[in-house]
Every structure is written in structure tokens, then in C-alpha cells.
Amino acid sequence: MSGFFNSSIGRKVAMALSAFFLMFFLLQHFAINILSIFNPDVFNEVSHFMGTNPLVQYALQPVLIFGVVFHFVMGFVLELRNKKANGIKYAKNNGAANSSWMSRNMIYSGIAILAFVVLHFIDFWIPEINTKYIVGDMSGLHNGEFRYFHELVEKFENPLRVVAYVIAFVFLALHLLHGFTSAFQSMGATAGRKKTLQNIGKAYSIIIPLGFIVIALFHHFNH
């Protein structure tokens, strides 16, 4: 089996598996964030649960970090290997004649997403870790109320942050528009080429990033 993951196909499968995990994570992240529009109280409750539940914090969170790091590192490793396999560049290459822009530029949309993830870590994750595990305040309270919704609204007051969000999620949409069906294809699903899966892929790739953009804009203009 270790031989399998060292083969070119094994690496594709590993990329696809980490992609499935990240796409699932994105879906649940979206489901929680969208609550902030419809019901701040429920959003606070769920955020508190996710932020303090030992299973989420000590089991799922490390898996998530591993998944994110793995997908990025593997992406770069594969890109470098593929560059090496290329040889001399063509003087004229008409890539648009046979493939989508998204499929040819996964590394660049990936880098844009990586930049956002780094920003998100500094912006959200590190302060959270600091409050909960260094200061030791697991209450999730601020002035006697849950702090999560309030913090979210505060974050989106800054127009620069909102712009960064919008740009990052546009790149995420571009990444997913190829990545979703590509992951299924790598796992051996010829269904990746059939209409249903392609349509689900398109819907997911547009609705989820667009939803995150709507959340950011909603809180920016509503508060």
C-alpha cells in the first residue's frame, strides 16, 4: 500500500482524498457561518460548541490542520514534479483550445487560497487559541454574553477585510470548479464526466463561496 501512495496515481488519490475532506469541512463551516445571518443566538451556541467540545478541538482540529497542510504541500510537490516532466517550453502553446482556465491554473488559485488561510489563521485561529488555551478563558463570554457573533460582526466592519474575503472566495470558486469533479475522476469515478456530478460540482463550487461572500457583505452593510 505504501508503494501505491508513492506512485503517480497514488498521489492523485491522496490529493483527492484530502480534497474530499476539505470540501466536507467547507460545507459544515458554511452551514455554521450562515446561521449568523438567520439566528445569532444559534450561531453563538454552535460556535461555542465547536470551540470548546474536546472531540472537535483535540481530535477533529488536528485532522483538519493536517488535511490543509497536506493538500497544500502535496499540491506544490506535484506542481514541481510536473514542471520537471515538462522539458523545454513551447514557443506557442494554445492551452485554451483544449482545457479550462481553472484546470490549468489550480496552483495559482491554490496559492491565493493559501494566502487567505494564512490570513485567517492570524486573524481568527491564533487569537482563539490565545483566549482559550493561553489566557485559559473557555467561557466564550464577553461582558456576560457570548462573544462569537459580536466578534464576527466586528471583523467585517473593516472594508479591507471584506475585500480580501471576496477575492479569496472568488479564487476558491475557481479552484472548486475544476477540483470538485477532478477529485472524483482521480478516485476512478467516470461519473465525473457525467452531467449529474458535474452539475452538483458546479452548484457546490458557486453556492458555497458565494454564500461566504454574502455573509461577509451582509454583516459589513448591516451593522
Binding site: S8, R11, K12, L78, R81, N82, K84, A85, N86, G95, A97, N98, S99, S100, S103, R104, M106, H178, T181, S182, Q185, S186, G192
Partner: peptide
């Protein structure tokens, strides 16, 4: 020394 497929689909077209 061939590269890794990223499912662009260019091969099928050409």
C-alpha cells in the same frame, strides 16, 4: 519521468 495527471482533459481533446 512523465508527470502527474491533473484531469485538465486536454489529452482527450487533442
Amino acid at each position: 519521468g512523465f508527470g502527474n495527471c491533473t484531469n485538465t482533459g486536454a489529452c482527450e481533446v487533442e
